[in-house]
């Protein structure tokens, strides 16, 4: 069993490949999480404009990306755009797809956070002489982020897990490297190893989330 699924010799041989994949997964996450947050912030700030000409297109935009599978979006960019003469490469496609997809999710979360801050806070801030942008940046957003922190973290976990889609468009992240190693060694060991790496990295985050969610629940009671 160990011989097949966690062969020590194979692990020793492929360790450098897996490590390179890990570095790329970390790098990819460090790029796509801030990009998604930026997209989300834009969505959430636009949502504070209550004009119907902003509201409806924005809602359609968010719902579209909630309905559209991220892998399909990624393949559409990677395999579709070259037909329009635009060849972006796997890494750029992942970045754009994540900006659009996770931006919609982060946007929904941040919007709920902003909604959770009482209007009185904004009125008080404005009455002290802060302009709208200052009130949003210094008063509303910090409280909004605090209120939805568990959801933000949970979405960030999903985004990090989603970077494994990069393997489909040849971005050499963990899963891609594992599949390369698997086809070289004809053994499931690389994939088992990479699953363990993912688990060890993300487990603490899942535990933390579980605890935050329970605390949120307890305070609601």
């Amino acid at each position: 069993m160990i011989e097949t699924f966690l062969n020590p010799e194979i692990i020793a041989a492929i360790w450098p490949i897996v490590l390179a994949g890990l570095a790329n997964t970390v790098l990819l996450s460090l790029i796509v999480v801030p990009l998604g947050l930026l997209g989300g912030l834009i969505v959430a700030l636009l949502a504070t404009v209550h004009h119907p000409l902003v509201r409806w297109p924005l809602m359609a935009w968010v719902d579209f990306f909630r309905a559209f599978p991220p892998l399909v979006l990624l393949v559409l960019l990677f395999a579709g755009l070259p037909f329009a003469g635009l060849e972006l490469g796997g890494f750029a496609c992942v970045a754009i797809a994540f900006f659009l997809n996770t931006g919609a999710y982060y946007g929904e979360i941040l919007r709920a956070g902003i909604d959770s801050v009482p209007v009185g806070q904004i009125e008080a801030a404005r009455s002290t002489g802060l302009n709208r942008l200052q009130a949003m940046g210094y008063i509303v957003l910090p409280q909004a982020v605090r209120n939805v922190l568990p959801d933000l973290l949970s979405n960030t976990l999903e985004v990090v897990k989603l970077t494994s889609l990069g393997s489909v468009v040849a971005v050499p992240e963990l899963l891609f490297q594992a599949r390369q190693a698997q086809s070289l060694t004809y053994s499931p060991t690389p994939i088992v190893l990479v699953a363990i790496v993912y688990f060890l990295i993300l487990w603490p985050m899942v535990r933390l989330l579980s605890r935050l969610e329970n605390r949120a629940l307890a305070s609601r009671r």
């Binding site: 897990k161 994939i191 990479v194 699953a195 993912y198 688990f199």
Partner: peptide
């Protein structure tokens, strides 16, 4: 909750 779905499918 920790493993990416694609990794589980491939596994």
């Amino acid at each position: 909750r920790s493993l990416p779905p694609l990794v589980i499918i491939v596994l």
